[in-house]
Design a protein around this nucleic acid. Structure first.
Lengths: 195, 195, 195, 195
DNA sequence: TATGAATGAGTCTTCATTCAT
DNA sequence: AATGAATGAAGACTCATTCAT
């Protein structure tokens, strides 16, 4: 596949991502993608054989970008509090822009593909990464005397479940920024932080 | 509609519920229901005009049954701890039987119908009821000296978000009974309960 | 068939006529009739086997009633002018109440049943009766010195074609009372009448 | 749409026209068209979304062709009599080929779409054009001394109503060429022509 | 590579008609 | 006589997928 084709593939993926953001996963048809990309039906099939394949590649693309973003946000010599602040800010941002993220599409995709191997489960990786990052954070926070957290791993998991709860709630029940803030504040208080 | 057709309607609803449990919401077609019920196409339309209508009635039916179940589980003169135990046991039961509950279908339904009026949002009602019940529970637990909970309302919300997080996690990432127990234990410890 | 059944049949026919007046012929289903009559599906089939059969009986009923109406309108010892006036008034009335007559249904019925034997063709009978009546009228008008009409039969046919033209025009293009009056006036002038 | 598909669209329209000529408007289904064209269901929907849309395009096509035909029939420096002859010949041709014209379909279409804006009403345009053409014709015929017609506009309208009457009569009652000739002759005599 | 016309399977929906009660 | 539940055929419409160019 030549350089040109690679660019076109990128273009299709970017356009498809927008479509998935708007319509979720299960409602998206190949025609939707074709229309959005303004290419021919046959042209799309040269690159992707199904919406399923498309979505998986969109996910892959996104996970790469997310890593970059997160790394970029953290300055040099950050304190545990700094990192936690960035982490929670990122989570808040993601769960507040309903209809403008892949969240619903991801859920729908996993619902429709319950037999996905654990290692390919994007949400699971994200969740476990979150737990790891937070655990480390709480441990170093304890050492630095910034947090007081008896069970870092347990607290980390608790944080992540609350965040998952907020995420799904924002997509199904609806949620305001105040509610999110209140909830995150509650978590922080459990750490002995009150700022 | 005669007595006979009421029964048939019940039959269709029960059968449809099973279909929704197996296939979720968005993938279910009227044909799926027809096949599962072993009736004619026209026969189904005599009772329900769309999968949407069917699903809403399945939900209604379920909410009635759930109320009964919950009421039935609580003995006489229950202590706050008793009630909390029943409540958590119910939640645990629901979130563990993946593929055997309407959870996914409910999420998909709300994804596909983002414009549902708040008052008709079944999940929202369930969430808010949960918060209210838990808040009352924590208050009376405080009075009875069983719990020590500084912020009953905040803690109640926190509980519910964790439960929502566990629920969606169990459907997308997968979860073991041990994980659920560990997580619920963590919540209980926050109340000063260690049994 | 008992007396009771006869009444029910009448009831169904009268109700069906209203339906045909509203919806024409081809768009009417047995369900429409059933709903309008507020009887059961099976009940309707006891009396009529199809919308076709129903419509034919509605037509028969109407032709009987029309004859009565026409006879009733003409007083004793009428002059040719009197009769012509009544005749044209009737025609005008029929062709002006668009949407409130069987006109469209009749046309649709004949379109859909081009193989109807001439003798059963209701419109044909009506047309020919009209020609006969008018011919007689013009002849006696000539004798009485009221009209001056060289070719009574030809003029009669001409009248009837204009009336048919007005009728179809009112249903397809739309027509005002003024237009009808103007046109009828034009016809009268041809007879040497100017009132 | 490429050159090829323009041809296919033409082909479908021509085939559909034949179907409408045979079956009228309301009885025609997309399947009828598909079968007549010997294409696939989906193939038809590529070009037309409904029988309604198809019929409107058939009408458009026809109106263009009719204009051409009419213009082509009139030689150079025609006298009013010549033009009238061509006009009536055209009308006669149209109203005699029952089952081989779109007349019934047009009527049914208007019956089924009573809310068509006046400006889009094809029959109305045709009728009014006819009135205008005839009025001009009678006026110039008067000037040329070929006709003697006191009320050109009134006579023109009268002609058109008779023609409409003949048209609907030929489709519902049936009519012979002799009858048409007799009737047109009667009209001509009113103009003082006896050829 | 790329196009877009074409296909046919699959789903939705309505209707005439039957039949057990 | 009368009911209305039930059926299955028929038509509308959409979509993934293929293929000649």
């Amino acid at each position: 596949m030549g350089e040109k084709s690679v660019k076109k593939k990128q273009y299709i993926l970017n356009t498809a991502r927008k479509v998935f953001m708007e319509k979720g996963y299960s409602a998206v048809t190949m025609k939707d993608i074709v229309d959005a990309c303004e290419i021919s039906r046959g042209g799309l099939y040269l690159y992707f054989g199904s919406t399923d394949e498309l979505f998986r590649e969109v996910l892959k693309l996104e996970s790469e970008e997310t890593d970059d973003t997160f790394a970029g946000q953290i300055g040099e010599n950050p304190t545990p509090s700094d990192i936690l602040a960035v982490f929670l800010k990122e989570q808040k941002k993601e769960l507040l822009h309903k209809g403008d993220s892949l969240t619903i599409a991801k859920y729908e995709y996993l619902f429709a593909n319950s037999e996905i191997p654990r290692k390919d489960n994007y949400l699971r990786k994200q969740f476990e990464t979150g737990v790891k990052v937070l655990t480390k954070l709480f441990e170093s926070g304890n050492e630095a005397g910034e947090f007081s957290c008896e069970d870092p791993a347990g607290t980390a998991r608790n944080f992540m479940y609350v965040i998952e709860g907020l995420k799904i709630t924002s997509q199904t029940i609806g949620i305001t920024e105040q509610t999110v803030d209140k909830e995150l504040m509650f978590l922080m208080q459990g750490l002995g932080i009150t700022n």
